[in-house]
Design a protein around this nucleic acid. Structure first.
Lengths: 247, 247
DNA sequence: CGGATTCTTGAGCATATTCAATTGTGGTGG
DNA sequence: CCACCACAATTGAATATGCTCAAGAATCCG
């Protein structure tokens, strides 16, 4: 059974092939004694609170989505979470039907927030990691908000593809970039504030214009990264954020 | 000169009139020795970095907007900042033309981030304040993202009005809620991912349907809060977030 | 009071949505 | 191995919602 689950997700090679060290390695000894390790499968939901009290989650591997559904509207994917990202239960407003959903097989650390906060007061590395993780996520959300609010359909899709290509892409034959699409069309549409039908149409247009190729339903190859890059107003910001994450 | 500047902004009475204690009072002695106090006027821009190094800003009074402009698109207001909110330079991605703009007269504390981070390691109250401030903001952004991504025009406008009414509203004669509109139509439109014309039209419709009244360009009265509340899918979440902020 | 903004409003238009039909995929069991 | 089913994705035609552009009204500020 090789389908669905991406065997590379645990080791996660860097963008365009550069190997990436695990940024959580230094924290492992500090955190693991207090953290529960959760293994998730595609589609699995993770409860946002541990018996009523606030929890913190640290993504070890895989991809998750943080979702919110306001009454009477369809779901909104508030953020796509990658390894190194941190979520607190309180990041999701109450009465908003929040959910943390695994998009691929992966691993999570879960701690009570009170415990993690306590650890942060003792261990400066933990405190600093938390601050930086949250700060990175704020910057990404700023891009996301700008994309949802100001971009047209094609720009939104291009932005999403570039985001993924930079995160999990590897060079493919012919100068392209290949990467997994851990999210379903519906997930992506809910992330971008688009209709799934419209999204599908837009991706088809990208495919027929030669920018994109699908080897598989869950895998894409960007044949012409340059062309794609010019389609998204956020390209420069995304590249910048991504290179920071490494250095 | 009473115009534009809201004389209440310094003391800031709570929602619907309950007096609200200054949540920053306990931190005053810890922070003020290291913070520069900036007084802003409506329309003023605040530089996001202090001579090249990362800065942190804590809103004392007034209202600010955090803006981002991707090349080739119009501006997006990423967040509206109220007293108690914290912003780091790194919350804005590079290459995104970030700006921190004052929407009303107000006061800011500015520190180098390195200094604030250092203070947080010594003083647990500071650390805890930072974590909670960021967490609150994450939750608000989740609502904002859901609003931009999923709501229609009327729902977006209703959501915005409720947000402001809960924040800065005071009961007015006849059971309504009166509050300042510190943002221009264009600002609000950029916040909601709408066209300014469309926004104006929508507010006119609310006005002619009796929900809303304008005494002044920068001041609004919600005559029927219930009716407005039913127009926004995020009402319950907003109320919840707002009541948390007090308790 | 006058000039410059900002806001409002209308008419026509464009983009994305809706709804429905069709095709494609992955998984299951014969 | 194939047939089948359920689900996801694609595609088309009609529609709706919000946008553009332009003109006029209101308000701000010197």
């Amino acid at each position: 059974m090789t389908s669905g689950v991406n065997p590379r997700s645990a080791t996660r090679p860097g963008p365009l092939g550069e190997p990436k060290p695990d940024p959580l390695a230094p924290l492992q000894t500090a955190l693991t004694p207090h953290a529960a390790t959760l293994r998730t499968r595609r589609g699995q939901n993770v409860a946002l609170a541990v018996d009523g009290s606030e929890a913190a989650f640290i993504v070890r591997s895989g991809v998750l989505t943080l979702n919110v559904t306001m009454p009477g509207t369809s779901r909104q994917v508030v953020a796509i979470l990658f390894p190194g990202d941190v979520v607190r239960s309180s990041f999701v407003p109450r009465e908003a039907d929040g959910a943390l959903t695994s998009a691929s097989a992966g691993e999570l650390w879960r701690l009570r927030w009170s415990v993690l906060a306590e650890l942060a007061t003792r261990d400066q590395a933990v405190a600093s990691f938390l601050h930086e993780a949250v700060s990175r996520q704020m910057a990404r959300r700023a891009i996301h908000i700008a994309a949802i609010g100001q971009f047209n359909c094609q720009q939104k899709v291009a932005t999403f593809l570039i985001e993924l290509a930079l995160r999990t892409g590897t060079p493919s034959a012919g100068g392209g970039v290949a990467f997994d699409l851990p999210l379903s069309r519906t997930d992506v549409a809910d992330y971008l504030g688009l209709n799934a039908d419209t999204l599908s149409r837009t991706m088809s247009r990208l495919r027929s214009s030669g920018v994109l190729t699908h080897t598989d339903r869950n895998r894409a190859v960007v044949r012409d990264f340059r062309a794609l890059a010019t389609l998204s107003p956020a390209t420069r910001s995304l590249i910048d954020i991504h290179s920071e994450k490494i250095g």
